[in-house]
Design a protein around this nucleic acid. Structure first.
Lengths: 125, 125
DNA sequence: AGTAGTAGTACTTTTTTAGATACTTAGAAT
DNA sequence: ATTCTAAGTATCTAAAAAAGTACTACTACT
């Protein structure tokens, strides 16, 4: 009767970190959004729109709201005209920076060995 | 006339590592599948099915084929009856292990602080 | 008076992703 | 003669994600 406990629903149903991570940063845009906010210091909705080539307003709104809900982002609303909102990483969001960095380093080396960071081209002028 | 070169389509359209990474490991199951194969040494289709609670055969097949296509997995077919196929990480796939490890460590600490690895419960009996 | 700027909302349509179901192979066990 | 096994394929449907379009608010500028 020595059962493989992995088949036990109670074990499987538990919070499985990789599964949760996938649900939190999955999707077509999230790690890209986090990456822009964390490393490029993008804070405004409009700037994110321009940088995330191909994203629509409604999708960006939804993604930002989810990242806010999951605790990664803080959304500071200024009561100004025209409207102003600034996005920034929470402390929790900042804890994720090393993961983003690891991903980026790996991607540069293994996915895009001939990639040149366009940000450097901007700042050097 | 000093333009922000980031608005230049040529720069944006280039291979952006994070974007590529997202497309490669996005989806509902991929990092979970890689994680099982990398750390739990799961090699067989059926075992993956049992561990990935809720996945269907066709979805698992598709995910595995994509991971194979993207270079992460090697698929060894044995001409036996009943059929036998073994999945394993390619060299490229192995290069991704540190990334998985970083993700896992972060997830355990920040997403699931009360998580206990069920694999340990299996092996200790 | 008309247009631009920012950060959206609301609603619909399209695309992508995943799930459901039935079927296959070929031998071994019941 | 069935049933079981592993690892699928093929086809269809459902659900989720993303995109498209139209519209808003308030002020400043032309």
């Amino acid at each position: 009767m020595s059962q493989n406990k992995f088949t036990d629903k109670n074990v499987i149903a538990r919070c499985v970190p990789m599964s949760k991570l996938q649900s939190v940063i999955g999707g077509k845009w999230k790690i890209l959004i986090l990456w822009y906010i964390a490393f490029y210091k993008v804070q405004r909705f409009g700037e994110l729109m321009r940088r995330l080539d191909g994203i629509t307003q409604s999708t960006l709104t939804k993604q930002l709201r989810e990242l806010e809900y999951d605790g990664f982002l803080h959304r500071e609303i200024y009561k100004e005209i025209p409207p102003k909102v600034e996005y920034s990483l929470t402390e929790f969001g900042q804890s994720f920076i090393p993961v983003l960095q690891t991903m980026m380093t790996w991607s540069e080396k293994y996915l895009c060995p001939d990639y040149v960071n366009p940000y450097q081209e901007i700042t050097k002028e």
